[in-house]
Design a protein around this nucleic acid. Sequence first.
DNA 1: CTGTTAGCGCATTCAC
DNA 2: GTGAATGCGCTAACAG
Lengths: 334, 334
Amino acid sequence: MPITIYDVAREAGVSMATVSRVVNGNPNVKPTTRKKVLAAIERLGYRPNAVARGLASKKTTTVGVIIPDISSLFFSELARGIEDIATMYKYNIILCNSDNRLEKELQLINTLLEKQVDGLLFLGSEIKEDHLQTLSTAAVPVVLAATRDADNILPSVTIDHFQAAYDATKALIDRGHKRVAILSGPKTDPLGGLLRFEGYKQALADSGIAFDEELVRSGSYWYETGLRNMNEFLKLDNPPTAVFAANDEVAIGAIHAIQDSGKSVPGDIEIIGHDNIRLAEMVRPKLSTVVQPMYDIGAVAMRLLTKYMNNEHVEEHVVLLPHRIEYRQSTRPQ
Amino acid sequence: MPITIYDVAREAGVSMATVSRVVNGNPNVKPTTRKKVLAAIERLGYRPNAVARGLASKKTTTVGVIIPDISSLFFSELARGIEDIATMYKYNIILCNSDNRLEKELQLINTLLEKQVDGLLFLGSEIKEDHLQTLSTAAVPVVLAATRDADNILPSVTIDHFQAAYDATKALIDRGHKRVAILSGPKTDPLGGLLRFEGYKQALADSGIAFDEELVRSGSYWYETGLRNMNEFLKLDNPPTAVFAANDEVAIGAIHAIQDSGKSVPGDIEIIGHDNIRLAEMVRPKLSTVVQPMYDIGAVAMRLLTKYMNNEHVEEHVVLLPHRIEYRQSTRPQ
DNA sequence: CTGTTAGCGCATTCAC
DNA sequence: GTGAATGCGCTAACAG
């Protein structure tokens, strides 16, 4: 039989309301009685029941987090940012993997809403009409992280993917390359795929370089994809002399493909990756890459969510975090 | 105003008990009325309140997971195993980072227990008397994963770390090495540190090789530690010709230290790592390593927890998962 | 400052 | 098969 607030009240010789007050730090309690209650709590080993509290107060101090895959280096870093800020604001997180599967995502949203989370964080996956519709039934705030909806209806935290890809491509061009290839993410991914691809094309156009379909390969964000697609590039009559990869894993796969073919990075081919996962510093040559602040995206998104949950005023509901290029060893020193 | 079970009852012209029955799949409902109720639920967009259900039923279908650091490649893989099995058994997980800090761990245990989780998974960190004491106040089952308590009081899922280290060291010795070094984890870590160190020493002893303090360096599990400590080895008058590293990151750091010094792996020095994080295949040379089945440890631990939560019979409460050595390129082909 | 009283939304007896 | 009644443990007015 678990100890309830009522047991404590009896033990301390006060009403349950008073016990509730001291448990919740309500100042309207005489220090003497507070001490009495605290002693009774200690003696009985009382542990407040957060479920009962949640039902009565309509707050669970829990937020739901829907993430494509927690085992990914990218998203686990994001999750850490979320959890740290959540802890700071006394929230816990219910973490769910969606594997980017629409059906599972919608079902998770419903489950989390049933669990009466105080807010929802939705990460990474593309936002379709179905999402918007299900999300619109939520009575609690929702924030997107590392993704956003096309019309910016929902609050979101991302970087400017177009600009990031533009900058990386431009940097390669400025280093004298005419044959700049892209290892793109899936075309179905609006941000990491399409938008970065657009940035790439725009950089070429602005530099008067003709777009060459031959220098484009898109696929998943896995190491093996980089390996495979880079090998295709290498078979070209006129292979690229520089490559922008849509993420770091792919970039590292590309580097290994190049090395395996007997060529060198950055000697023969220069590479710039994207994200700056911790791995980027743990390979040789160390990877030059576009820094996407994963931890911060998570942290800022969670902070934004606390503001909404707290009915605080929010200046801008679509926040773009800064990016930059970190030059390491897969590009030549300038 | 959210829709409650009562609204549905009125809309369907039945009692709330009946609605509760159809929501919970109780077979004792006439198909006709079931249909009526379902229609009313649909019409109203009713979403059951899991908090209220939790209070009434004393089950939350939520388990607490205390993890050192979700952003680590090792633990995020474990977490994925946990979450997948949790999903399979209709549980959600509340995920908390502990950073291996005792105080935070104890506080998290209490918080999760307050939230009335149906079970608790505790990962990675050393189990001290304080843990046992706090955990003993739990009214719900607890399972340890990737750690265990000294007296095997609590159920746990791990590999045999002594044997793993023994096997790796022995493999190196069998390849003809007399100077086998160890890049050990922290001595304060009972499994990854101490136990593996013991396995290393035993393998030496069994092979008649004198233990040499010079060939031992211990430290954190980070890449930089491997880099730094390997450099120390390299400065020795009589440096090691083989190294067993306490985890893969450290092993990769060591490889880079060796390469940076102008020597080669495995030509001059052979390396075996530990864990087999995904990274092991994403470096050159690819890392030979002791495979620790992270995903499975998480999955099995969660499965074990479901058995306890379900009052099922459990054969063995201390489970050791198998390990093996995966030979890749940081050891010479045999 | 403290106690009394109502629910919060649901599962669960127990009757019928 | 179905409904009425009770209580899970707590917060939140409201009185006093």
